[in-house]
């Protein structure tokens, strides 16, 4: 999938968020010398191609009362991990689902899922119910709740970063 230099500039300019003013796409374009029509056309194309997964209001779980944030990691046999990953990635409880490498002996887990909930108990219940329902309860897993959030902001990709 090709993402060209102008697309990257646009994604970079957008990473700080869209201005809260009447013509935000025109303002966005102005910062990188792109007219509004081109901004809209490129964003539509990036969205159609799945480079931009979603475009809209990005909420903060914690501030909305979803205080419990659990990284649930699984040790799934390599030949099963893609299949299980697709199943858990589609589960409504899961907000992220990635396969990552094991780092033995420190780290045996190869599938990462994120579950948010109002409190620990609701996350633990949701996890147990999901594991049963999806047939993955027998795989070794570990739950890493977050204790403190030191930093959270959007990723800053693209060329705009170079100027910061």
């Amino acid at each position: 999938m090709d993402v060209n230099g102008r697309d990257l500039e646009l994604i970079g300019a957008l990473s700080g968020g869209l201005a809260l003013q009447a013509n935000p796409f025109a303002a966005l374009g102005q910062s990188i010398g792109m007219d509004e029509a081109e901004v809209l056309a490129r964003l539509q194309d990036l969205r159609d191609r799945g480079v931009i997964r979603r475009l809209g209001v990005i909420v903060r779980h914690h501030e909305l009362g979803y205080r419990a944030n659990a990284m649930v990691v699984w040790d799934i046999p390599d030949e099963k991990v893609s299949e299980i990953g697709k199943i858990l990635g589609a589960a409504p409880e899961v907000t992220l689902c990635y396969r990552r490498p094991r780092r033995l002996p420190d780290w045996p887990y190869n599938l990462f899922t994120m579950i948010h909930g109002r409190d620990r108990l609701s996350v633990e219940r949701a996890l147990a119910a999901m594991a049963e329902r999806e047939g993955v309860a027998h795989y070794p897993r570990h739950v890493l709740f977050s204790l403190r959030r030191f930093k959270q902001c959007g990723a800053r990709y693209g060329r705009a970063m170079a100027a910061e």
Binding site: G17, V51, L55, G56, V57, I58, V59, R60, G154
Partner: peptide, 12 residues
């Protein structure tokens, strides 16, 4: 208030 991070994109 902090409940909205931004209006923007989530990039693959």
């Amino acid at each position: 208030a902090g409940s909205v991070a931004r209006v923007g994109a989530v990039v693959r």
